[in-house]
Design a protein around this nucleic acid. Structure first.
Lengths: 215, 215
DNA sequence: TGAATAGTGTCTTTCAGACAATATTGA
DNA sequence: TCAATATTGTCTGAAAGACACTATTCA
């Protein structure tokens, strides 16, 4: 989700949504934390309020902005495809969604935002495997095939169906929604599942060294 | 590795080493990047130059410092026990090493540094398992038993010897140093190993979903 | 019935867990 | 020889890989 910059430098270029911290109590919008500031900027510029937000990394150097030494605290957010509608009436006229292919977006980005995006993609790819982060990219209820498609998209490889299903179910991160099936298609109806809320750490990793110890 | 604060607020309390970015070209010490600044502060306050430095997380809010809205970009460094001597002649008179037990150090820390430390320990524990980060806590050459001790310390659990050795060797992250053995002890001599430099990502995880695909 | 997708059975291979056996050294 | 630690052997069980099979729906 990119916004078109209305100001120099790099006016007219697409960039990641963002802006300055509001640390002044007198101003109308005051940020209590950096995370609040990230949510506020995203909302102001795109109208989007994401269900998932995670601090990514901080970028700071003398030369990433031609004007001055700058520090950017990057966050990354996830949202299900069904909820990506940009709201009118905000700055959203200048915001648009772009597909990512090979960690890269099809337009040139301002400043070092290409690297920031690449880092976000890397983080997402790595976390999908050992957390239930994929939950934020799917509707509340989904089929195991849909879940597998998300994994395959993010991991960029085919996964064997039986192994995937066994593992996801054994990990206990999903549960079937009783009686909820996908119908109306000329195929066998698919069972709908939902994610089970759990502590992040006991997901997946059935046989990695750290979790091999006796319970 | 903590330093004793010489200034108010919280004067006399121990805190993580750190300081302000130097973004002014005119001043003597100029930081080109935040990482350089982190190394400079560590060197100035403790005399230590670590072989490993990784950005941890950025902490920023209105209330973490009583004086003002502050942002701290936290890094964590690792260094082998054999190299932990603090150099005299620096500010190191006010620096000292403290043991960590259960993610916590035995003294009260300034500001929110206790949380920062806890986050660093969490990061280290999580990375030890799927990267060769432990290399930075051992001498250049080490025995597999020494390596296992590091893993057990960090993961806080016993690991079965045979499984550990098989896995470490199969992952290809270590190689024996030909002819190098630990001698002089009244035990069978132990083979010395060194770490193999590799891309981070193809370590460990022999059978996790992401890496299960055909090569 | 056929096409399409959902879901299962089952055999093989790999690796962790457990535990024991063997190997090598200095005192 | 004994104590101590290094290293390997081997059996078992669990999970992944591969692949084929069955199940259910609509047209």
């Amino acid at each position: 989700l990119l916004v078109k910059r209305g100001e120099h430098p790099v006016k007219g270029k697409w960039s990641l949504p963002g802006g300055a911290l509001r640390v002044n109590k007198e101003s109308g919008e005051f940020d209590a934390t950096i995370e609040e500031a990230a949510l506020r900027e995203l909302r102001e510029e795109t109208g989007v309020t994401p269900p998932y937000l995670e601090q990514l990394m901080t970028f700071g150097s003398a030369d990433r902005d031609p004007r001055d030494w700058t520090v950017s605290i990057a966050y990354f957010a996830l949202i299900a495809a069904e909820n990506i509608k940009l709201q009118a009436g905000t700055d959203a006229a200048e915001a648009a969604w772009f597909p990512i292919r090979n960690s890269v977006v099809g337009v040139n980005l301002a400043f070092d935002h290409k690297q920031i995006l690449a880092e976000a993609v890397r983080r997402l790819r790595s976390k999908v495997e050992y957390t239930s982060i994929a939950a934020n990219l799917l509707p509340k209820q989904f089929t195991l095939t849909q879940l597998q498609r998300v994994f395959e998209l993010l991991l960029q490889q085919k996964i064997e169906k039986k192994a995937f299903r066994l593992r996801v179910q054994k990990a206990g991160i999903v549960e079937p929604v009783l009686g909820a099936m996908v119908v109306g298609l000329p195929t066998r109806p698919a069972q709908l599942y939902r994610f089970v809320k759990k502590k992040e750490r006991d997901l997946f990793f059935p046989r990695s060294l750290a979790f091999a110890a006796k319970q």
